[in-house]
Design a protein around this nucleic acid. Structure first.
Ligand code: SF4
Ligand code: SF4
Lengths: 134, 134
DNA sequence: CCCTAAAAAGACATTATTTATCCTTTTAGG
DNA sequence: CCTAAAAGGATAAATAATGTCTTTTTAGGG
């Protein structure tokens, strides 16, 4: 339970590396993958997700690659994680539409909401800038 | 990520039910399973784990069954969850012996420790007593 | 002593998720 | 039109979650 997947770990490493590059540098996926030691094909999927939700900008064709869409201090760790893992949900019943008919009277339900809020708060308090500054 | 498994959900439901029974009541596994709507064979495994670490006491043979080993206000939700899910670990590197050679210099590492502490704090603040009292 | 009830233990079977690769398509530059 | 690079889709392999079945141990009661 509660464990970040490889995908999430890779996602963070990849985008943190990108955040650490000079602003005008258009990075190649393969270079990023090599630098952060992640299978390039897997990282490709991750960056596609980033691109779709607008965390990074991508350029195709010759001279293409990736750059951050916003400055590092405007991107939180929460956004990065939820981009690839989906919304952080400590229990099904805390997700949008409940499947659990007990949720109305359940005393545990609010505990999971508390957990969710705490975790999201911690992660949203950290930006990519915090993670690259040595 | 961060999702409680069925096993964890079942574990909570089962032990909360047990906590809600009269103190002297030795409950049959099958009765608990029926009451909380969990496959009996699966719940059996869960209660075996409870028994091993001393959350519940079990009695075998005729007239056997389960009772809580401690009063409900002395058992936290954290204990219950970690009994079946293992220690809450938001990322590998936060587990005992690190596999990640980056952990020494990594700026993300302490974030996961913060997440871990927050989650464990929330769960350890809730006891079975809180969960049964209507 | 034997029979029955009940949990403990171990060995599977099934399904879902994670992790990863490969191939084709689209886009853009030169 | 050729090449570089990301996008997209299909699929394979590995791992983990979920669930079932059978056998073993323990205890009570006739
Ligand atoms: S029983 Fe309570 S905690 Fe469990 S899924 Fe339902 S509402 Fe959520
Ligand atoms: S890179 Fe940092 S956060 Fe990721 S596993 Fe290693 S120590 Fe942990």
């Amino acid at each position: 339970m509660m464990e970040l997947t490889r995908k999430g770990e890779y996602a963070i490493r990849g985008i943190v590396y990108l955040a650490g590059q000079p602003t005008d540098c258009i990075c190649l996926l393969n270079d990023i993958a090599t630098a952060v030691d992640v299978p390039a094909t897997f990282l490709a999927k991750i960056f596609q997700q980033f691109s779709k939700i607008g965390l990074v900008k991508s350029f195709r064709g010759t001279g293409g690659g990736f750059v951050l869409a916003r400055s590092p201090d405007k991107i939180t760790l929460l956004e990065v994680v939820e981009a690839v893992e989906g919304r952080i949900v400590p229990n099904r019943c805390v997700a949008g539409r409940d499947e659990c008919e007990r949720s109305v009277t359940c005393h545990i339900h609010p505990v999971w909401q508390r957990v969710q809020n705490q975790v999201r708060d911690v992660l949203s308090a950290v930006t990519l800038k915090d993670l690259v500054s040595e």
